[in-house]
Design a binder for these strands. Sequence first.
DNA 1: AATATATGCTTAACCGATTAAACCAAAAAA
DNA 2: TTTTTTGGTTTAATCGGTTAAGCATATATT
Lengths: 335, 335
Amino acid sequence: MAKKVSMKDIAEKVGVSTALVSYVLNGLEKEKRVGPEVVKRIHQVAKDLKYKPNQIARSLRRGSTNTIGLIVADISNPFFGQLARVIEDEAAESGYTVVFGSSDENSEKSATLIDILLNRQVDGLIITPSEGSTEQIKMLLQGDIPVVLMDRYLPDISTNRVVLDNFNATYTAVNYFISKGYKKVNMIAYKSSLVHMQERIRGYQEAMKDNGLANEVVVKEISYSHAKSEMEKVMEDLLLDKKIDALLFATNALSISGLYAIRKHHIKVPEELAVIGFDGHEVFDFFQPPLTYIQQPLEEMGKESVKILLDQIKGSRKKVQVELTHRLIERASCL
Amino acid sequence: MAKKVSMKDIAEKVGVSTALVSYVLNGLEKEKRVGPEVVKRIHQVAKDLKYKPNQIARSLRRGSTNTIGLIVADISNPFFGQLARVIEDEAAESGYTVVFGSSDENSEKSATLIDILLNRQVDGLIITPSEGSTEQIKMLLQGDIPVVLMDRYLPDISTNRVVLDNFNATYTAVNYFISKGYKKVNMIAYKSSLVHMQERIRGYQEAMKDNGLANEVVVKEISYSHAKSEMEKVMEDLLLDKKIDALLFATNALSISGLYAIRKHHIKVPEELAVIGFDGHEVFDFFQPPLTYIQQPLEEMGKESVKILLDQIKGSRKKVQVELTHRLIERASCL
DNA sequence: AATATATGCTTAACCGATTAAACCAAAAAA
DNA sequence: TTTTTTGGTTTAATCGGTTAAGCATATATT
């Protein structure tokens, strides 16, 4: 039988009011001048009864839950899984628990999730916003709810965010290609108006232009929801007319499905096609040859996000915008 | 300003008591015979004010939170990430939200997590128990808290569980090896007393014995916390004396780190060494040659777990023990 | 002796929703 | 006309903590 032990039980056993119990258990015995005898007994009885405070009750009264909501595109994608793990650990250090949800890059799901998490009174949210979620986020800000956007951000909204230096990342990648002698560099990205994606595309385009390759610019855009089939088609197009010698992927998942296609068509990397991936994945290590890729500092991204969020929760109204630096991990998929 | 809208606000605006508001918003207007005019106005005002019930308050009163706690070994491992995703979706369909935590196969962390989740009054828990967590789980059962063990289970405890047919899985794998002519089959597993691991080992051993290969049985056990370094050592041992011709891995993560070692030592698969992996991973697809492996039915496992848990939450006291069937995915890493 | 100050503890309101019980008026039955 | 029923609504307790305010009693101050 799970007779939940409440303060009342302790109070009765010790023979005092619940107020005293609360004071003592919250370490206010000095401030509230509780008698030393009573303090001792309360602690003792609490331990004996294995008292655990009911966080729900506490939350209701305090108006805060020590919970943060995390909305990612898809928790089963290791990129987000790893982020979630970092966030979990970092939050735990400050006594916070994480409730999560996957939005599938879908603004309706995202809206539903935000609603659910808010009804559960999370103290703040870390969100990888999806396309079309601007209004939702604006609502949050109007509601003065602590929010940190992570991985992407919404340009119309000035709020806290932690993102990669996306422009530089792909700019660097292209320059790397070019330094190796590749000229016909194409890019495969998601069809998305989200800034992180647009910046990655722009980085590619600018780098091409700055190297006098403006007319070689080709960006193939793939929709998130039909990624697999579209990728096959796109890759067929790209690979069959053999007009290109290098390919840059804009994400983790795109890289992997691209690699599937490359393997299927027996394209030799890097001889026939040089490749640079994004984010990183164990698959990159095992592909033949190991993939050169743009790495995101996941650890930093997660930690920063939590840190900023907790700051906001504690009352800071400073808007913080962090741009993290990518790393180019050089392997063997070029030259 | 985030003036949270409460029932009181609605009640005041409509000019009735909060009780009526509660009845109407919970669809009890018939039962409680609320006047049709009032019903309409309450709904209207609720919509106008964008009222969202405070789940914390509701939870406190109801004694249930519509939240389930999920404890996995590590959310950043795609195996668990995918499980989490399935669980999330399945739970959402019934109006439940998931709070999660990673135990790192560490019973202390697990204990802390369980504590935290219980204090947050989760309605039930899905747990992949770690070694040494028997006492914790017993406590839960004594407390009549709905629990489903997933992926592993504790033999000393008769409770709900959803696990793979681990014995058969490795038994099949070994038979497959043998049918292909391999005799010197070794296994790499985690050093763990947990039943799922022991069963996988036993499946391997029995299959070897049943094929008259008892004296070829070698199981290398690796500790979770030092997996990487130990794997390197073990693989060096195994590969250098070239006494074996086939290798069976007991998990996802083991397979991958094993593959790293295999590649490092330029072992040719399957010519020099046949390999069967476990769980599945994109890396298995990209390894040369693609890996044959034992697949777990993740979707089923997640869904079943949620289904059983919700059943328990709804009051069922029937103990359910589900054993799911593995699949052998045949690729090219044998023969 | 009268007043001020500590000391130690209790009361009770509160957080927001739920719900049993009580209440009252009007309509129906006796 | 009185009683019962039906309809419609309010009251107030409750969930388990938190916390401002109040109330004794004892000790110190003037």
